[in-house]
Structures are given as structure tokens and as C-alpha cells.
Design a protein around this nucleic acid. Sequence first.
DNA 1: TTGTATGCGTTATCAT
DNA 2: ATGATAACGCATACAA
Lengths: 373, 373
Amino acid sequence: MKSTVESRTSQGDPRSGANARTRGPARAGMVNMKDVAQHAGVSSSTVSRVIAQNPAVQPETRDRVLEAMRELDYVVNGLAQSMLGRGSRAVGFLVSHMVGPTFADVAQGVEEEVSKSGDLLTIITTHGDPEGEMQALQQMREQRARAVLLVGASRTGSGYGESLQSYQAFLSAAGTRLVLCGHPALSSVPNVPSVHYDNAGGTRMATEHLLALGHRRIVYLGAQADHSTAEDRLRGYRQALEAAGLEVDPGLVPDSTFELDTCQAAMEELVSAGRDFTAVVAARDEIAVRALRVFRRHGINVPQDVSLVGYDDMPFMADLTPALTTVRVPYRELGRRAGRLISNGDAAFTDDVLPVELIVRESTGPAPEVRAG
Amino acid sequence: MKSTVESRTSQGDPRSGANARTRGPARAGMVNMKDVAQHAGVSSSTVSRVIAQNPAVQPETRDRVLEAMRELDYVVNGLAQSMLGRGSRAVGFLVSHMVGPTFADVAQGVEEEVSKSGDLLTIITTHGDPEGEMQALQQMREQRARAVLLVGASRTGSGYGESLQSYQAFLSAAGTRLVLCGHPALSSVPNVPSVHYDNAGGTRMATEHLLALGHRRIVYLGAQADHSTAEDRLRGYRQALEAAGLEVDPGLVPDSTFELDTCQAAMEELVSAGRDFTAVVAARDEIAVRALRVFRRHGINVPQDVSLVGYDDMPFMADLTPALTTVRVPYRELGRRAGRLISNGDAAFTDDVLPVELIVRESTGPAPEVRAG
DNA sequence: TTGTATGCGTTATCAT
DNA sequence: ATGATAACGCATACAA
């Protein structure tokens, strides 16, 4: 590939002597429109028109301008354009941490769409705390961002609705839209569009799958209050049990969090206490893997002794032994939808919910008593 | 948490009637410095001083200004600031695709550093082709980005040096620095700093580990010319063999690429052809996993029959059966270094090389003939 | 079709 | 300590 770049390393400053400074900020020292105009012997308006692809400019003049631009290695100042509402704008992608396939896939999806309209994906980590979130929001306001995406789970305390409402007001004052992505949507905050997936549906399908295999005593591992994703997934488990006319045994939903270490400890305790269960629904794949470690240590075979289901279908879940049954989430598509929502400038309230898919592999099998019978 | 946001949903436009337009661009419709100044009964210079934390302003006046800012819900225009070289700038993160742990970890590292100085991490995918790369570069020029990071591997054709040189010239014309991150550095392009890790060192250590275990016929899976990372890693394998006084058997380095499917096919063929080998060094973990699948299908036991080493230490590599011996790369730290390089504005040429670490797990063991003997 | 004048929202300089 | 003014680089309304 022959690069189209001209290596204009040094070619003499085209604005020699013209820098008789008087007042105001110093020149950035770069070639600007005026320079191009002078070089081409036209006015800067004409240059502007050429850049804007305005057809109302004589082809001959246009060529002369383009030539001048090339010779001076001119680069439009996108910031100046943005100030006039013309150029590309930032799209803020707010996430607590840049970790996991969730993050990468959603971000990729957003970028695909956002780049189509020339906007720029700007990623900011909030460290999971409200202060970090506010700082990021403030910075996006200052940048006059096109939109801010709240990505991932969130604390769902009582103040969540108010918080969301104030975020919305906060951003709209700067002409920035707020979009939720994998974040819980609230009907009480109808002016904030949301793109989501069927979080509860995944655990419901997983649990139904286990029920169909004859399991009755099913552990749910990874319950956490005040955490939207954890809550939703737990709900799906409950729904499936209730639909089957079964009670939810609190002893099978150990106190834990959405975090790995607490879940592993909880699993360990359940096993050590000799609790009677034949299957485990884990809130996410990483938790399932921790459970797998515990089982292995205790000589418990999956799925012969216990069936296990994960959530997210992370990479390599099919390569574990046994291959993990799990729920696949269309994270990439989720990102695309969010991105499209921004580009379209669709002000209408949307609460898109994408379907998830149960991927049955080797870690789930018939309940022991069924097999025995 | 009581949010610090004032939900100024609608409070009456503070600039009523003052919008007697004459010419030029339309007002963005937002509160600006002048509005604040009028509201506080001072000049806009004073407001500017307050924002810039300039101590040369009477505390009393300052308070009045701050009050006005709050009342009007004023937000500085970061774009205007940037235009004058004052505000935050973009840091372009150019990567072919947003996949893998490489991406997320490096990006996280960069963001940690870059956010300290208030700059914004802007991620652009280049789709692995030169055109996409040029487009991204151009956009970063227009945005007057602080720097552009070329992240990940790259094609290493003959034109690579020239290409890099022209990129450098291209960007420097807009005051944007170029930094390589996991990209091969070239001594012929000394003005482009680079942050790298000991790519060859990883495969060298892996191969040495296998040699120490008595392996002599070691396959290298994932060789690809014209791909910097693939080349470097292959080199490490060669170095180790040569240092041990062994020849590199071309039959043990099958024609493949850095991609998964071709590697799997190559592995399949090696096995089917009954080639004599006792160990495999895979160019990356995902390739190793594919090899594992092939072995499993053919009833070959790891590490009893064949030892296997990966590269990258991706998540869950320790949870495979057998747990994969692999090379850990400090991707996060790599990103941090790159970020620091930008903030410091260190113009000096640097070619930082971070060490990697061999993580020995269960997939490598004594060579069969050693065990037998 | 092209040029002139003016404004976007900010900061720096100079004068008071 | 504060205000008036110019300047950053661009785009647009209007005149020619």
C-alpha cells in the first residue's frame, strides 16, 4: 500500500511574518483556513464551502483550493466545527470497569454504529461509585457529548429513580442525551430510552431446563440485593419455580453477592453442610466456574451428581470439562441498538428487550433420582 | 447518596430577548459565560478567572459568580477551551477489533493514566485494514488529539517503516503524538516512542521449559509471516531451540496463520499424519484450546502423551482440564505505561519492554520417553 | 459564484 | 482587582 500521506516534514511556515501578534490567545501555530485561502487566492468562505462539499462553487476554484489544502497539509479543526454544531461529537460510554466480554462486545457494537455518523466513542470508567459517575457526566457535558450511555448493572437503591431523573435533567441542559444499556429502565423516567436484554428470561429458561430434567432442589448462587442484574436474574429463577408450582426454599438461595469470592465461599459452605440439592443456577459464568472448582475439590461430579448452569456464555465455556450449559446474551447487538438509538436521534421512549438463548452443553443432565429410577 | 445535581428541568430562559440575531452562526441555546457574567453583575473576564481558579479575584466577587453559575446551571464549553489549548484532549486508541483480553486490559490501563490529566480515551476500530487506519488517523488529527496509540499487532510488510514514518509526520502536523503499544518499534523511526512486552521471551521461556522436561520434538503452532506478534513469538521458539543446540525441524512448524481455524486444521493434519512430536507451543491461548480439542477427539492425553503451552494467560485458562501452562503478559501495565508516556509529554525516544511470566500448570509434563526411561 | 462581515464561547493581553 | 478588547478557527447570512 502506497500511503496517501505526504511527508511534509518541514516545508517552511506558510504564514511567515503574518504573525504580528497583538492580543488574545496565541496561535496554535497550525495552518488554518485563512492560510489556505490566501494560498489559493480566494476568501476563506470559499474554502469553507469546498470543505462542506457545497456544490455552489466553480469546479476550477474548487480544484485550486483542494490543491492549496494539499500543499499546506491543511487539517480542519474539528473542535471549531463541533463548536458550531457541525462536526463530530463524543458519545460517552460509562462503565464501572473495563472488564469482561460484556464490556468489549457492547463497546464494539456501539462503535460500529456510532462511527457511521462520524461520532467518537469515548470510554470512561466510573469505578462503580456515584462520584466517579458524576465526574464522568460532568465531563461529557463540558464536551457537549451527543449522548451518554450508562452501561452495565447499577445499584438499585431507593434513590435510583430520582438519580436517573436528575442525570437526565443534568445532561439535557447541555444538549446531551441519556441512554441506558443493560441498565434497568424505569417507567417513572419515561424520557430515558433503554436497550436491554431479557435478563430474567435467561435464568428462567435455565431453571425450566433443570426442572424438565427432573431437578427439584435447585440452588441459586449469586443473589445480591441492590444490584439490578443480580436481582433480575434471581427473579427468573423464582418465576420458573413458581410457574412449576414449587416453593422457593430460602436455604437453597444462600446469602452471597454477585462477586466471585463470596459465591465460592457460599458454595463451599453448602457442600460442607451436606445440603441436599441436585443442581445449581449460577448468576454468571465466572461464578459457575468457581462452583465447579468447589465440586472438583470435593469429588462431586458434574453433571452426574450435580447439574450446573452459568450465564453470559463467555469465551471458553464450551471448553471446560464438562462444557458449561449457559445463557448466551447478544451483547454486541445490544451495543448496536444503543448506538442506533443515538444516531437516529429518536426521542421517543424505547425499551428494547433483546432475547437471550439457552445453550445446553454437558454440565446439565437428569437429576440423580430420575436416573436411579 | 444525595445527588449534587440540581434538577433544573425548566426555569425560564435566562437570556430572554437578548437574542436579536444579526449574522453568523446561531446560538447553541445554552447558558454561556456572558450570561453568567450579566447575572452576577461582572464581566466575563472575571467569570473566566473564577473558573480558572485564578487567585486574583476578590473572594466576595468569586462567591457571587459561583452562585450565578449554580443558579443558571452553567457548564463550560470544553470544546471552546480545547480550541485555545486549555481543555482536555482526546487520546486516540486505534485497534483493529475490540476483542480479547489484550484490548480490554490495555485500554483500562491507558484510561487510568489518561483520565488523571483529564484527557479522554477515544477508541476507534480500524478493521485491520490500512484505509480504516488512515481514516482514524485523519479524524484524530481533526480533533487535535493529544496522541494516537497504535495498539496490538501489525502487518510487517516491507513498507511498514515508511508507513510509520509518514504517520508520524502526518500527525505531528496537527500536534498529535504517535505512540506504539504492543506494536513493533523501529530504530529507523526513532521519534516514535514504543511500549512493548517481551514477546519472544515468552515463547523462549515456554520452549526452554519443555526442553528441560526432556522434550525434543516440539511443534510450533501459529506461525505467520507479515504479522509482528506472530513473528516475534516464533522467534522466541527458534532462539530456545538454537540455544540448546537443536535444529528447527520445518516439519514441526506447520504452515498456518495466527488465526484459529487454520491452526486447528494444521494440528489436525499433524495428528492424522502421525507426525512424531511430544509437545506443542501455541502462539496464543485460543490456538492452544483448539489444539486441545483436536487431541481430545483423537484420544491423545495432555500432558501424558503431549505437552501443551499457550500464550496470554486469558481468563479461565486455569480452569481447563488440564489447566493450561501459558505465558502471562502484563497488558494492563502496558496500557499504563503508554498512558504515562502521553501525559508526561516525554518527547524522548523510549522503547520500554515489559517482562512476561511463564505460568506452569498441568498441561506440561515430562516427555514420554523420559517418563518411560 | 464569490467576498465581507459577524458570531460561536472561550482565554490572554492590556489598561485602569 | 476588574473590564474592555482581541484572538482562536470556523460557518453562515447577506451583499455584490
